[in-house]
Simulated scan of single mutants.
Amino acid sequence: MSKPKPFPAIHGGCFCTSTRYRLECAPLFCHACHCQDCNKHTGSVFACFTTIEAEFISSIGKTPPKMTTTVRADGSIRHFASCGTCGTGLWASGESPVVVDIKTGTLDLPEIMEPDVHEFIESKISWVLLPEGAKTCKGPFDYREYWPKSSLKRLEAAIQRAQERRKLLAKVAQSGNRETEEEKEADKTPTAQTPDERDEVVEDDEEFEKRYLETEKALQERLEQLSLRLKDDEEVKGDDLRPGVVQPAKEPPTAAEGQAPAATGPEN
């Protein structure tokens, strides 16, 4: 059996282009939210998110994302990544960042990340028209019901790795030896790892590739359709995807640390 094509690295960034990032593998899920809170928070008529493990986002711009933390009225904690120069919001996660929700509009190619479901459909603005056949639900969606099985397996593996990481950090703290190899490994943050380092930790296998081949195939088809439309007037320039040039990435990794959507995730 031939292996599927590697997921093309998708880039994104802020308004002023100072902060840039890259997705190293296919997302877990995409969704749109039509609740009034998202309307107010985004200043638009609905919000759109692309969910992925935190480890598989790499900072590639001259300015690293600025991280801030807020506490909601219900006591829940949210972490936000934004550009420290222009203030563009890029992604958010819960208290323990197993996965993050990227603001789809900050991607260079947001068109290929079509929402898998539209939640809070009862609050949708009347003149916002959804594609024929689009999945919808009243109120927040349940990720256990809507996520594909392959994404649920990736989430389960990511949570397990996060738990192992916390145990390792606790063990290092108890040992008091700040120069051990265990500590050096524990101190590696997801965005600090290079793709090569990531490959040493997470290995692909044929079984895992089969599990989410269908998801990658659909994204590849979207990307190819968009590329055909842009081919006539766009020129590939190095590693820059703006507006629409895609670079090949490594084979998609299995799973690593990353947090499920704030309204539906298991760790929020």
Rank of each mutant, 00 (worst) to 15 (best):
P4Y: 03
P4K: 06
K5H: 10
K5D: 14
P6S: 13
P6F: 06
P8W: 11
I10N: 02
I10R: 03
I10A: 09
H11L: 14
G12M: 03
G13P: 09
G13T: 09
C14K: 07
F15S: 13
T17N: 06
T17S: 07
S18D: 15
T19V: 11
R20Y: 00
R22K: 13
R22V: 13
L23M: 15
E24L: 15
C30W: 00
C30F: 00
H31D: 03
H31S: 09
H31E: 01
A32W: 06
C33M: 05
C33T: 10
C35N: 11
D37G: 01
C38E: 11
C38P: 12
N39K: 13
H41D: 08
S44L: 05
V45F: 03
F46W: 09
C48P: 01
F49P: 01
F49L: 05
F49R: 02
T50I: 04
T51W: 03
T51E: 13
I52W: 01
E53A: 13
E55Q: 06
S59F: 03
K62T: 14
K62S: 15
K62I: 09
T63P: 04
P64M: 10
P65S: 10
K66H: 15
T68K: 14
T68Q: 14
T68I: 15
T70F: 14
V71D: 01
R72F: 04
R72D: 09
R72Y: 04
R72K: 15
A73N: 01
D74E: 12
D74W: 08
G75D: 13
S76P: 01
I77A: 07
R78T: 13
H79A: 14
C83T: 15
G84H: 05
G84A: 06
T85F: 02
T85P: 03
C86Y: 11
G87P: 12
G87V: 11
G87M: 08
T88K: 04
L90K: 03
L90D: 05
W91D: 01
W91Y: 15
W91Q: 05
A92H: 14
S93T: 11
S93I: 08
G94Y: 07
G94E: 11
E95N: 08
S96L: 14
P97H: 02
V98A: 10
V98P: 00
V98M: 07
V99T: 10
V99F: 02
V99K: 06
D101A: 12
I102T: 01
K103D: 01
T104W: 09
G105M: 02
G105S: 09
D108I: 13
L109I: 15
E111D: 13
E111C: 03
I112P: 08
